[in-house]
Design a protein around this nucleic acid. Sequence first.
DNA 1: TGACACACGATTGGATCCAAAATCTAGTCC
DNA 2: GGACTAGATTTTGGATCCAATCGTGTGTCA
Lengths: 225, 225
Amino acid sequence: MTIPADEMNGVGAASARVAAYLRDLILHDHLKPGDRIRQEEIAEQFGSSRLPVREALRMLEAEGLTEHEANKGARVPRLSMHEVDVVYRMRERLEPLALIESLPALSDDDHAHLEQVQQQIEANDDLDRFLDLDREFHLGTYSGCHIEPLNAIVTRLWNSTQHYRRAYVALGGQARMWVVNAEHRLLLDAVVRRDATDAERFLEGHIRRTRIELSHHPAVFGEEP
Amino acid sequence: MTIPADEMNGVGAASARVAAYLRDLILHDHLKPGDRIRQEEIAEQFGSSRLPVREALRMLEAEGLTEHEANKGARVPRLSMHEVDVVYRMRERLEPLALIESLPALSDDDHAHLEQVQQQIEANDDLDRFLDLDREFHLGTYSGCHIEPLNAIVTRLWNSTQHYRRAYVALGGQARMWVVNAEHRLLLDAVVRRDATDAERFLEGHIRRTRIELSHHPAVFGEEP
DNA sequence: TGACACACGATTGGATCCAAAATCTAGTCC
DNA sequence: GGACTAGATTTTGGATCCAATCGTGTGTCA
């Protein structure tokens, strides 16, 4: 019912606007795993035809945010605990690569921005805001990496696990926030020093610890009737 | 001009048929990096409207086989040597994960099939056939992995580098075919023994060696008039 | 002669209409 | 009473038509 009022509100790509709108809904948990997405419904909210919605759903499918079955429509994918575990293992292996590619290209301004984001994380106590800031922090450390296939896949992995990350933090993960901050600080320091070895190690450890803590919270993955 | 006559020739998904057709063209080098894909042209060949073509192009974009720019159309992406190098590094890190997931689930029949494919590789001397068989061999070793995000990304990485793999083999890589076969044999043996450690090591080494040999052939990436 | 501007052709993006498939409901038969 | 079938509704897939945008080529003016 709410008109998006997104970034590219002007002319150009209506399908991109729809995609941005749906992406936002999914990443902020207004559409949850298992939810069905009806084309007409979205089209109505936009006052557009269903066509841009169809294209948007294809784009989101590319990002791992929706899944599509012929003649049955689009849904937000539901991942099992094991699948999320493997996606985290993928992140452990891939993101250090993006970081290594990015490190030499990050400017002093980039470093300052990361420092500022981390300060906001430490001062913050809102769940949704933390998820946004955490994403901005990590993807920010990769912003010097200009290998498109790698960027696309890293973003995809983040997107497809966002819901479970939220569920975990909401389920008591905040108590471990000091660990997150310590890890972020060590990582950021290595980034500023452009120490690839340390940065890679801290990043992999950070993701790995999160994966293990997630695996101790099977309730996050319990399907509800 | 040739009608696809694909698997799903019946009713259902015309866009999927178009996607399969274009995928085949790209993987077999009838569409090369930099080539533009005109929607109307493809639609005409299929006797369909442009709409399924548009959806097909979105699907292929998801697989990394095409890239799309607003109001400018679709092209087959052209990767720089450095980009291909990074994609190979991604493969080095990701594919062992798929293999580990797959190993315990592979049946004796699967092993027999892999053995047979490898025999065909050793008996073969055709370039295109080698690429098909090599793909079947490696993806076959991952066929026990049922983590969709991982499968999708591995396939994507293979797709986006297929052209350069072909160019490398065509440019004299056949002389090193015995190395490929030795590596495949060691890998296959580890797979049959369900030795995850060895399998992972051999696979990573196999991809790494290919990456390094590719980097010694910059001609593969030189743009031709 | 060079550069800017305008207009035309080519190509993609979006809307509306129609067809096909799937799901849901109700009714009937065993 | 339960289960299967047939029809109606909902939803997606595809075709055709129209609008917007980009690239290009030509012409004119400084």
